[in-house]
């Protein structure tokens, strides 16, 4: 027995008991720059122990379609925020539709992302699935594009209707990207 009282050890609160948080992210865009935000957030949520579902709809379906998932592009057209990495000046919008601009902008963005150690889209989705994330494809988008489950990544759990998705994610926090 000691006569000095010791305070309880200061230990991070990993909140293991709190397991009911669910996040659902609807990925509706198929451009490279709009594909990443949902994946970065999904990956972060999974790393915090949050159950995470991704629903790929409209152009977002490209992210999980085998024939297209390696070829997402970034176009500066209509993006008034577009500037060269490390420069302040904007690129004049009149120049953005010139031939080769999309390819160049895509290369630049891929390089900047790779430099941060962030994977390309297919590998990023591998990581998300390994971390316990769930991938779902949108029925209407698959039908519009004539796609079946065989055209999609093997780890896509199912092609489901919008109502099924709403049903599966009851009580979830929802993000539309």
């Amino acid at each position: 027995m000691t006569d000095t009282e010791t305070a309880p050890a200061l230990v991070p609160d990993f909140a293991d008991a709190e397991t009911d948080r669910v996040l659902a992210i609807i990925c509706s865009k198929g451009s490279l720059d709009m594909a990443y935000p949902g994946l970065v957030l999904a990956n972060a949520a999974l790393g915090e122990g949050v159950q995470t579902h991704l629903f790929f709809t409209f152009w977002g379906l490209d992210m999980i379609t085998k024939a297209r998932m390696h070829h997402l592009q970034f176009s500066p057209v209509g993006n008034t925020a577009m500037h060269l990495p490390g420069h302040d000046g904007h690129i004049p919008q009149a120049l953005t539709p010139l031939p080769g601009m999309t390819a160049a902008a895509t290369r630049m963005m891929k390089r900047s992302i790779a430099e941060l150690g962030v994977p390309e889209i297919p590998e990023f989705l591998d990581q998300i699935v390994a971390a316990g994330g769930h991938l779902w494809a949108c029925r209407m988008s698959a039908d519009m594009n004539g796609l079946t489950q065989a055209d999609l990544r093997e780890d896509v759990e199912d092609i489901i209707s919008a109502s099924d998705f709403i049903d599966k994610t009851a009580g979830a926090q929802l993000l539309f990207i």
């Binding site: 991070p12 293991d16 790393g47």
Partner: peptide, 14 residues
């Protein structure tokens, strides 16, 4: 990553 989630459940990074 999968193994890390088994070894250090839910929040492996932290």
């Amino acid at each position: 990553i999968k193994e890390q989630f088994v070894l250090f459940p839910k929040k492996p990074g932290k």
